[in-house]
Design a protein around this nucleic acid. Structure first.
Lengths: 142, 142
DNA sequence: GTTGCTGCAAAGTGTTTGCACCCTG
DNA sequence: CAGGGTGCAAACACTTTGCAGCAAC
């Protein structure tokens, strides 16, 4: 494995006096191969298929590394656990979450973004990040 | 105390074979008197000033009642604890959250809402609720 | 007087941390 | 071979639940 993502992680690691380990490679590759919006436990389960004695704490620690290096983005859909989504070359988007089947549709609407900026400016607020989640029923579930 | 909110809660309670208690009144009135976006612990602290031996569990249970009866709305800003905001006669709004001082500015932009509906329709999705949180720096903190 | 409610403490979540040993650089 | 990384278990923070006594209807 020697993807761009691998490179990003290794760059981040060497820039911070950290070390590349077998476990970190495994977690990264599992993360990249996973569907989007995995939780730490999801990832732990996947990773264990490859390497059965990897610890949950290591998964958490690596996810935090991935987040710091910009490869992953932390999400919180309010169900009490964090999800992580891919971020490499992955532009910003928002979510429609089906409360029936759990499906997540991603979308991006430039005008919504534009009006957000406008409201912020009007309030003297500087946006560093935002998230828009819509909950409801997808086409299949109504 | 005999506000409209009190009425809403009592209606809900009697419709569900539940009972009105001193503690529930206390929690409701503390909730109504509180600033918006209180956490359960916040409310517990406030309530204890009036009635020192009220349990945290009771606060949680009452907040769940308030949420079910529509008086409160559960919020999750991703900081690991739920917040509750007033909902009686309180129209929908979104949030700008200052990551420096914690201030929360509420806003509502009809066009943003409109475009949300549009995106949803285009995807065959029916929105039941949504939330838009923007994180950044408020005017005082930059 | 039922039946639901309370306070307390214990159990449950999901996540983080301390530590002795291990491995990368 | 030094210093960070790992697995494990314990600690955490927030929330929920079980239970015996209590109070509302």
């Amino acid at each position: 494995m020697s993807s761009k993502e691998q490179q990003v992680l290794e760059d981040f690691i060497s820039q911070n006096n950290l070390k590349i380990t077998r476990q970190r490679r495994t977690v990264l590759s599992a993360f990249l191969g996973s569907e989007e919006h995995v939780s730490a436990e999801d990832l732990h389960r996947i990773v264990r298929e490859k390497e059965s004695n990897i610890g949950l704490a290591t998964v958490y620690r690596t996810l935090s590394l991935l987040t710091q290096s910009g490869l992953a983005v932390e999400l919180d859909f309010g169900d009490g656990q964090k999800r992580y989504e891919h971020n490499y070359m992955h532009s910003h988007h928002d979510h429609m979450i089906c409360t029936e089947c759990g499906k997540i549709i991603e979308f991006n609407h430039p005008l919504i973004e534009k009006f957000q900026e406008e409201v912020a400016r009007r309030n003297g607020f500087t946006i560093t990040s935002h998230k828009l989640d819509m909950f409801g029923l997808c086409a299949d579930c109504k």
